[in-house]
């Protein structure tokens, strides 16, 4: 057990502990704060894996966006400072069942993924290159059956990014400086080749644009015939609020 492993286990314990506190605490604001810590812990895990870009995006999206949104909605609810009543037994039972199922599922995944790669200690260049860029899906299917595609896309500029695959951190990847640059990620994102992501990227942008326009339409006040009752200052506010939520 070296220092790196110690750091990993302490980060993991931090994530799990704060996650547990987030679901067990009876004060809703504290729950949000524990969730925040759990998300920061995940970002720390990404930093430990040296996938700094993903880590920064994790912080920007979850901590700077989602949690702030959650906190704002807590502020705007009534009696947010009071203790919540304890959940019913039936609900608890279902929650525990769901948690157990999730645990078993991930255990199964890890069992499937671990022995084939880490125990054999494969060097990083054997890892699948074309399919490993999405950090979310790489761990299970990419490592098991992706090795056949490894050779045919070896000249892909994104091929150096095998470290974005979780659970594949070997001693070589930790010390080497061959990590993906942000420009590689950007090029992959907008490339129109086989392994480019330009279509999903554009689809997601259209989705976000639609969401933003929808927010503006919902929040926009139609010019009513009856003369303004409230002060004219309050009319502009909702538009900016919702825009902010969408963009952040």
């Amino acid at each position: 057990m070296n220092a790196s492993a110690i750091i990993f286990y302490s980060i993991a314990a931090f994530i799990l502990g704060t996650g547990l506190l987030a679901v067990t605490t009876r004060k809703i604001f504290r729950s949000a704060i524990w969730l925040l810590f759990s998300l920061i812990g995940i970002a720390a895990l990404y930093f430990w894996m040296n996938v700094t870009f993903i880590a920064a995006v994790q912080i920007v999206v979850y901590v700077g966006g989602i949690v702030v949104l959650i906190i704002f909605s807590i502020f705007l609810t009534q009696r947010s400072g009071k203790k919540m009543p304890a959940p019913a037994l039936k609900r608890n039972a279902f929650a525990i069942l769901a948690a157990l199922f999730g645990f078993a599922f991930s255990w199964n995944l890890i069992q499937g993924a671990l022995p084939s790669d880490v125990s054999r200690g494969l060097p990083s260049d054997v890892f699948p290159k074309g399919t490993s860029d999405g950090s979310l899906k790489g761990s299970s299917d990419g490592s098991l059956k992706g090795s056949s595609t490894g050779s045919q896309v070896s000249d892909d500029p994104f091929g150096k990014t095998s470290e974005t695959v979780p659970f594949m951190k070997t001693s070589e990847t930790m010390t080497s400086e061959t990590f993906a640059d942000v420009s590689d990620i950007g090029e992959q994102m907008l490339s129109v080749t086989d392994h480019g992501y330009v279509l999903p990227f554009e689809v997601v942008s259209i989705l976000l644009l639609a969401a933003m326009i929808g927010c503006i339409v919902i929040a926009m006040k139609t010019p009513v015939e009856k003369k303004p009752e409230g002060s004219p200052l309050t009319i502009k506010e909702p538009v900016t609020e919702t825009q902010k939520e969408v963009v952040s």
Binding site: I33, L36, I40, T52, F53, A56, V57, I59, V60, V63, G64, V67, V68, I71, F75, F179, D181, V182
Partner: peptide, 20 residues
């Protein structure tokens, strides 16, 4: 760090949580 600028703008967004 190779994402220096992004790191700064990402981490600085945590401070709003402290204020809230």
């Amino acid at each position: 760090i190779n994402i220096g600028v992004l790191f700064v703008s990402a981490v600085s967004s945590i401070s709003v949580i402290g204020v809230l």
